[in-house]
Design a protein around this nucleic acid. Structure first.
Lengths: 251, 251
DNA sequence: TTTATTATTTTTGTATACAATAATTTAAAG
DNA sequence: CTTTAAATTATTGTATACAAAAATAATAAA
């Protein structure tokens, strides 16, 4: 019953690297799992189970869960446990709105502080995005797409804003997982490229407009029309116009 | 040696209130102590000591310290322990810059969503500020001054931005503690009042300008001129133009 | 007296044990 | 057969025990 196989794999190499990385490793591993949709929103994150998987005690798992909870990737219910967050439509709108605001500030900083090397790195980042999209590697693309925005934040040289954006990017991934309607996404690589061009040309206003359009496009691809679980249930079980009882056939 | 006196006081009433509040209580208590300058920047926060003070085990204290660390109020050094943060001048500038950006977004939201009741509450908040200032209650004023900004965030109805601002306000208090030069502060109540007026008049641009001025005034009152501890030591011990040794008279 | 090195103590990091709460199953009644 | 209540099981919350690391004290050498 105790599947301890993964443990060895995890501890491989931890002898050489610093001790603190055990925490960080599990954190990264869980964040990846959530953002790559291997752990769906709402999934219960049992401390015992995770402890066994990673070969550590609940103490360590608890620390990681609290960290994820502070970043709103995980929701902790007292005496109930931790679950992968299920952001509401309202929360989704909030996150996108916050991103528009913060990324505007970041673009201002990036336009100011940019170096040619920065622009080069950004272009490489978009190239990697485009490559993963052509290869149909959706998981890699999601990650790289977020990385572009984080690279932009680095160029703006404000670690405080970077940290905020990092949280927002993670939460956006979770939101996309939950509310993306229809096709995966039309290639936003071009939008990223345009933003780089505007920044390189030090055209602040254009860069900001492009970024706002980009983020709005992202929001528009979501299905945030009050589709709560509750409403869904009602609509799913709503028969034409029957109102009388005795309508429960299939278990 | 074991001073367990405070324990009783802490647990008083915890029977009736929900269990989760023990954590929150200690968190609030420590945050207050730091922001009210009873715990100076750099102070070591020993887990054992805090556990004794609050009558709980290190487990609980650790959770609280991690929470404070995530909000950058506390800095955790691996294998060394937790310390009250000592924000660098660079970090101070970052925090104020982030505040200008986020509070601009908040003002936009507040102008849009305001109700007469909101304006009334804001005015009451400023009245309380003015009152505490007249009574010379500096601690209360610091707290109330921050509360004004948080009330504004509530009106904007974006919990994500509110959470960010909450962290920034706390960090600003810590920054002021460390870098405030000269007088405590010229009454910023008037600036707050002006901002309320502009919001009530739905004059978005004026409100934003006033807020930026207000935050810039706050930053200008700080002494962020590369006065690291290192530089301080050099300047403190710098005698007119002596350069030869044997200059250590006073211990 | 100062410096270097070793031994001791203290403190953090992690695992485990126990208590409290929630979830599940079983039994009983309608 | 469904519903309700009690008993059982599982899971989280907290305290404690032990291991690892750092800080401190003590000793020895220069």
């Amino acid at each position: 019953m105790s599947r301890t196989a993964p443990t060895a794999a995890l501890n491989r190499g931890s002898r050489a690297s610093p001790k603190v990385s055990q925490n960080d490793f599990i954190y990264e591993e869980m964040l990846d799992a959530i953002l790559e949709q291997r752990l769906a929103p709402g999934t219960k994150l049992s401390e015992d189970t995770l402890g066994e998987i990673f070969g550590v005690s609940r103490t360590v798992i608890r620390t990681v869960l609290q960290r994820l909870a502070h970043e709103r990737i995980v929701r902790i219910q007292p005496n109930r446990g931790a679950f992968v967050s299920e952001p509401s439509p309202e929360e989704a709108r909030e996150v996108l709105q916050a991103r528009r605001l913060i990324e505007e500030g970041i673009i201002r900083g990036a336009v100011r502080n940019q170096s040619p090397e920065d622009i080069q790195e950004l272009n490489q980042s978009v190239a990697a995005e485009r490559h993963s999209l052509e290869n149909g590697d959706h998981e890699a693309w999601v990650r790289l797409s977020g990385d572009f925005h984080l690279k932009l934040a680095e160029i703006a040289r404000n670690q405080t804003l970077s940290a905020f954006l990092r949280e927002l990017v993670s939460r956006t991934s979770l939101i996309i997982v939950q509310y993306q309607k229809g096709a995966v996404s039309p290639c936003s690589c071009d939008e990223h490229s345009e933003i780089i061009e505007a920044i390189a040309a030090r055209d602040e206003n254009r860069a900001i407009t492009l970024m706002n359009t980009h983020l709005q496009a992202c929001e528009d691809q979501l299905n945030l029309c009050e589709n709560d679980t509750k409403a869904d249930l009602y609509s799913i079980f709503a028969k034409p116009t029957r109102k009388t009882g005795k309508s429960r056939g299939a278990k």
